[in-house]
Design a protein around this nucleic acid. Structure first.
Lengths: 335, 335
DNA sequence: CTTTATCATGAAAACGTTTTACAGAAAAGA
DNA sequence: TCTTTTCTGTAAAACGTTTTCATGATAAAG
């Protein structure tokens, strides 16, 4: 219960509290001898700086807020791991908020972040309304958008090109010259799903096909394995199996794979299948899954570096909207 | 950049700062009329309480630290989701630390927690040395152990009985009366792996078998799908395929499954296979995986409730060492 | 009416840092 | 020797809350 304060350290080292503070924050400003003495006192007493007092006086904390849509999704987990890594390296603490796709919860998270006076916020917005984020900015809290390109140039963002990703996936499927292709997706209101569809259309057009006829959209309400399997069962029941399937994420694809195999459909001989995200489990399934890899971990790392740079060097900081390119990973599920 | 303070709110409402503070913290202590006036002023000015100032003066913050071994593992992700849920409900912020199984990084996380003067810490210790946690306790920071039974009775913990889990898994395999059983595990220095092995032995003994002869241990250095597949390949290459396999987690089991299927071994006809954790992907694999389910999400929820209870009612709080029971989930991979 | 109890509010002192302005001492230049 | 400059270090005032104690006002009791 005994909390050692800077005063006690000062007393033991025979200096003033101000000097201890200098040792902590600007070691070069204090003579080597005294510094050593203070550091010894700190060790002896087991002093640890009171973060709240520090940020109260200094006007800013050493924490960042991270708000993700679904911490249970391996995609966001990887992002979070990258964020935590960089933050930890630079002595920042990460406050985690899980919005579950719920606007209200997202608002509540942002409020908590504001109360904590976080230095900055990393957020994968759960909807298209970004006005709230502008308000944070007015409060002096920097914001970096994750997996969402910024619309304004006074803001940093890190994203992956979903149009290219969709196009790459379908172009790969087209190599085997399939007849009909199905696009199994989550709600098209989700930007990522919509962009991947646009990309798919582009690839078809580039191959001289009419997207409206060659591509069938199957929109599911959830983006999990169960939905994927339902989609498979539906296609089979209706007897209109396509030659190739592009799923908007790997969870859908894994469900689809299972549904197909259970019905005796061979993958990739009868149906070619490609997913999106390249989660770890994509390579572990019975027929390993071709997929579109995103630099998930880097997404988190770079976003955090951008944010911390903006915080620590506000003068020299140049806002950047970074767009990564996805990568095709070919495995067994495609011809 | 304009940070509205309690003073400005007080001025606008025509009261003193103390009264505003009362409205914030003990609304019942202030007359309805003034309270309404203050609340209006808060809304008008967009005031949000300064957490640092608050915790500095109050002597405690509204944050908890969460240190997990691997945020990339679905098990811990589920735990984290449970933690975040409860913390968020009760107005607490969660500071996330990922130790990656690294003692040093774990120490660093605990230091950050200490600096932030978190109200309490939830931790899945990455090793058997808990002295550091005692030190936190002396600092007035409560600690709840997650997925690790507490050794001392002055501490709360939430865990799942791994001995019972191991025993349940093997008892289920024994129903089909297999000859040889293999236990594919991570490092036996990991308590969970060791306990599950003990349970396996108990089940064999209860069935009148000699554990030393009926059970083969295959210890891998990592607990991921790749290791599982390697184990499968090794068993096949050496031509000593067991009749049943118990994997210490689902990632190992998924890898094992893939290795077996690729070699033309039928599951469950030739080899019965059971995993552990019942992660989401267990039901999505080509042959859906039998597994031992742990109440992962609840683990996180209950641990957090225990911690917050200890924080908010230190007087009436009774330390508890909670042990959940795992549950057998039978799917296609076992006879 | 006075006295006492009850209640709502205010004034001011913390909490543990950081930071600004400044003072002494030592070193350097004249 | 005297001024100027450079170093080190100090004293004290913040930062925005919470909380204790006191105070005045109102209501209840005598």
């Amino acid at each position: 219960m005994s909390s050692v304060s800077i005063k006690e350290v000062a007393a033991r080292a025979g200096v003033s509290p101000g000097t201890v503070s200098n040792v902590l924050n600007r070691p070069e400003k204090v003579a080597a001898a005294t510094r050593e003495r203070v550091e010894q006192a700190i060790r002896d007493l087991g002093f640890v700086r009171h973060g709240s007092a520090s940020s109260l006086r200094a006007g800013h904390s050493r924490t960042v807020g991270l708000s993700v849509i679904d911490i249970g999704n391996p995609f966001f987990t990887d992002v979070a791991a990258g964020v935590e890594e960089v933050a930890s390296e630079r002595g920042y603490a990460v406050i985690l908020g899980n919005s579950s796709g719920d606007r209200l919860k997202e608002e509540r998270n942002l409020l908590v972040f504001a109360e904590q006076r976080v230095r900055g916020v990393l957020i994968t917005p759960s909807g298209p309304d970004l006005t709230r984020l502008g308000q944070l900015k007015e409060r002096g809290i920097n914001v970096v958008l994750v997996d969402h390109p910024a619309e304004r140039s006074d803001q940093c963002s890190v994203a992956v090109d979903d149009v290219v990703g969709g196009s790459t996936a379908v172009a790969h499927l087209l190599e085997a010259d399939p007849g009909r292709i199905a696009y199994v997706t989550g709600p098209l209101a989700v930007r990522q799903c919509a962009d991947r569809l646009i990309g798919a259309g582009q690839a078809l057009a580039a191959a001289g096909r009419d997207p409206a006829r060659a591509l069938e959209e199957i929109e599911m309400s959830a983006m999990n394995a169960r939905s994927g399997q339902q989609a498979a069962e539906k296609l089979i029941a209706e007897g209109r199996l396509p030659d190739a399937v592009f799923c908007a994420n790997d969870l859908l694809a894994l469900g689809m794979l299972r549904g197909l195999l259970q019905a005796g459909v061979r993958v990739p001989e009868d149906v070619s299948l490609i997913g999106y995200d390249d989660i770890d489990f994509a390579s572990a399934s019975a027929v390993s899954l071709s997929s579109i890899r995103q630099p998930t971990h880097r997404l988190g790392r770079v976003a955090t570096e951008l944010l911390l740079d903006e915080c620590d060097n506000p003068a020299s900081h140049a806002h950047q909207q970074i767009m990564f390119q996805p990568e095709l990973i070919v495995r067994e599920s495609t011809r």
